[in-house]
Design a protein around this nucleic acid. Structure first.
Lengths: 336, 336
DNA sequence: GTGAAAGCGCTAACAC
DNA sequence: GTGTTAGCGCTTTCAC
């Protein structure tokens, strides 16, 4: 096992000074092209990788970015990571994963986790991106952060946004246009800002269509399949059951699908069901789930980009609202 | 936000040398108790935290562990991460995620990624854990590693094992016992050792039951839902179609389920379908999928434990073979 | 027991 | 354009 090459090794072999090697490695100007080439060749031959401890010691940085989230669905987590890693490719920052059980209950614990992980910056997914104590502590500790689809305090930090309310309105309008007038809603986890925003969007669509509040049954869920099953049971086991169900994510939508099947209700003939997120499961269940696509990986990449800009000393860029898209599949159809 | 205190600050305030502070911080002997106390008090007052970059620069360690894998299903990735993080809780090591596109095609690229990330150790999931060039390069570079369910070269490195062949045999035996005699097999990605091991297990069961090779149709897949759909079509669209299908993971099993439904074949009355892995989707599809459970998180935790032991200078422990378990659900039934 | 000096690998500041 | 010097925060070596 041979020790890693250092700039000194390269300098010797290339017949230049260490500083020149450093210049080449950091793409700084003021190096002759032929020397630049030679140094690069030697570095490649020696399989040189810069020592981030040494770089960090000078700049007092760790080149570590932490991604925090609370056990949401696997495909959401993987999309988040994929987007962040895409943006990080070729950068010297590495992604540390830091799932956390319940940031709302223990905001200090989350910040302590980030501090002990010694990250330069954090990517905050919902719901921790909406917890003021977390943002306050981060501001104080000098850990930069970018917020992924926050629902509140949009002026704080740098945010990659989604118009959850408009997305909720869009999917509800799809069902209204199919002639539905009696709705069931399965809410997401109450701690997530998206839960109330999506509901507000549904209500926008209902109000515009003149649908009475009495014709809207709202059941609580928490984004899990299991909670969706229970909620769907409460909605579908009644005689005046809704003709359409709006579930706030696809896991719960798929759960509603399976409850309908168990109750002998044909989908979409007897009841239409729509989800949210366009997770893998939306395409894997049957009938496939009508849903709203959120470009999660692109959003994570955008947030990562914002974080990098801050870490490199740039200004906070104005937030971007990423587009959503209703995807109509087999689980929704005309009202009976 | 004022800069972090260093041992020099503490040394000055405590009226000792930097080295003495260092001794106290590392619980080294040869420091008078009263000085030790004084230094500790000053350190606490200054909210001192050692600079990991400086420590790492000397010890050439980073306290970073890299987890490598190739875009398998999200639930597998999340289980891997969960297991690794469970073992890492309370340790000073952090988990860096390093997905890699195709380690078999570019083994050097994977090792370069690990080196540039400066991890102390790597957790290698399939298929990279079975690529000799990767292991060779890691051995040379001084990056420790633990292998997650390898299928070959089991004597190399430290391994968390699974008996894929026995698991394959077990699920196939379940179908044989239900009276099935004509089988379809949907293989996983050809680059994964599990693909051939599971197939060998199926064949063990078939041979023991005296089933002729002509009654076994084998189709290639690559672990994706899409590949499973295509393979299931080829199996089920023929007149002498199998009465049972063995898919090498649950995504492809779910795909076979949806193809059967599209073709008007009742499951399990017309055709039985079994998956592999017990991923989330096995419980979310309908009928729920009979499958083989692999304790992925526990395996990842075991591999992490092995890696930590190596990093702390311990010996390689003997490999453990983790148990599998056939889970019978609604997708398999007696042969017609 | 304790401290001074050297150096880990790299880069900022400055000289040439 | 290029090299020299100094130093980031810490630990190792060795003198006292």
């Amino acid at each position: 096992m041979n020790r890693r090459a250092t700039i000194k090794d390269i300098a010797e072999q290339a017949g230049v000074s260490a500083k020149t090697v450093s210049r080449v490695m950091n793409d700084e100007p003021y190096v002759r092209d032929d020397i630049r080439e030679r140094v690069k060749r030697v570095a490649a031959a020696l399989d040189y990788h810069p020592n981030r401890n040494a770089q960090g010691l000078i700049s007092s940085r760790t080149f570590l970015i932490g991604l925090t989230y609370e056990r949401p669905s696997p495909s959401y987590v993987v999309d988040l990571q994929r987007g962040a890693l895409e943006r990080l490719a070729g950068e010297r920052y590495r992604l540390v994963v830091l799932p956390f059980a319940d940031a709302r209950e223990d905001p200090a614990g989350l910040v302590a986790l980030l501090r002990s992980a010694m990250v330069d910056g954090a990517l905050l997914a919902p719901p921790s991106c909406d917890i003021p104590e977390v943002l306050d502590a981060l501001d104080n500790s000098g850990i930069r952060y970018a917020r992924i689809t926050p629902g509140t305090m949009l002026e704080r930090g740098s945010c990659a946004l989604l118009d959850e309310r408009a997305a909720g309105r869009a999917i509800a309008e799809h069902l209204v246009q199919l002639g539905h007038r009696r709705f069931g809603v399965i809410l997401g986890h109450p701690g997530h800002a998206a839960t109330s925003a999506r509901l507000a969007g549904y209500r926008d669509a209902f109000a515009a269509a003149g649908i009475a509040p009495d014709d809207i049954r709202i059941e609580r869920g928490d984004f899990t399949f299991h909670s969706g099953e229970a909620a769907a049971h409460r909605l579908l086991a009644r005689t005046d059951r809704p003709t359409a169900i709006l579930a706030q994510n696809d896991d719960m939508g798929a759960a509603a699908l399976s409850v309908a099947r168990a109750l002998g209700l044909a989908v979409p003939d007897a009841v239409s069901i729509a989800g949210f997120d366009d997770a893998d499961i939306a395409r894997l269940c049957w009938p496939q789930l009508t849903t709203v696509e959120q470009p999660v990986a692109a959003i994570a990449a955008d947030a990562t980009d914002r974080l990098l800009k801050q870490l490199e000393g740039g200004e906070l860029a104005a937030a971007i609202t990423h587009p959503h898209r209703v995807i109509v599949r087999g689980s929704t159809g005309p009202a009976a």
